[in-house]
């Protein structure tokens, strides 16, 4: 399964590079475009803090896109997370895309597969929202909601508060997930856009396990709260 991790990375990066090399013709109204974004690639400041990342990529047209999302965390070979989503994204409202597809949680083991029905877009007051409903094997269900905003301190110095929460329909003992709200995560990152497409940042990231999941973590001797200072980069092309 260790190989799967690097395979996952390779797949994502290979897809990304293929997509970014796609070209388009002249003054077409709706050319085939591709987009690869490293939303977060960061390391905690303490030496034993994990490296974590969140990437997304799409290829497609104004209304319809194939969308890949992947995120993960690497602490050590025994403690890592990696998930990949492959979605079809369709514009359904001026600011909203509906997304459906599949998700695989490659790490931790055992892996889990899900069907995804999500929505992504911009809510009033400029909240970037990514929400999804997941239906897994054996009738497991889960929801996730991510909210993010950008506060411009200057045109290039941008503070980004973000919030994410996850919930499970029923417990998954193998993965130490309890039914109900499993965890919340909040972050505050300050980036400086050297160009529109590249910005280093510093930030703080805080997460907390909740409810039954927190109980399971306590039983395993794992921490419930986790906070760290991070340094990272965000980029797109």
């Amino acid at each position: 399964m260790k190989n799967f991790n690097s395979l996952g990375f390779t797949l994502v990066m290979a897809t990304a590079s293929v997509m970014s090399s796609l070209s388009y013709a002249g003054a077409e109204d709706d050319p085939l475009l591709s987009y690869v974004a490293i939303d977060q690639l960061e390391k905690g400041l303490e030496s034993d803090d994990p490296i974590s990342f969140s990437f997304q990529a799409w290829v497609g047209y104004d209304m319809d896109k194939i969308w890949l999302k992947t995120s993960g965390e690497y602490q050590n070979s025994d403690d890592q997370d990696l998930e990949v989503q492959a979605l079809y994204s369709h514009a359904v409202a001026p600011y909203w895309d509906m997304q459906m597809g599949v998700r695989r949680d490659i790490k931790p083991s055992p892996s889990r597969d899900w069907l995804v029905l999500g929505f992504q877009g911009l809510a009033p007051y400029f909240f970037d929202i990514d929400g999804a409903f997941f239906v897994g094997e054996k009738g497991q269900t889960s929801i996730r909601l991510s909210i993010e905003q950008e506060w411009l301190i200057t045109q290039k110095l941008i503070l980004t508060p973000e919030f994410e929460m996850n919930a499970y329909g029923k417990s998954d003992d193998e993965l130490s997930m309890g039914a109900g709200l499993t965890d919340i995560n909040a972050g505050l990152r300050l980036k400086y856009e050297i160009t529109r497409k590249f910005a280093p940042y510093i930030g703080i990231d805080w997460s907390k396990k909740l409810g039954a999941t927190a109980d399971l973590a306590r039983d395993n001797g794992d921490s419930i709260n986790n906070s760290q200072f991070v340094i990272g980069v965000t980029a797109w092309f």
Partner: peptide, 8 residues
């Protein structure tokens, strides 16, 4: 657009 509203 480098003239967006800022916090100031």
């Amino acid at each position: 657009n480098y003239s967006e509203r800022t916090m100031s």
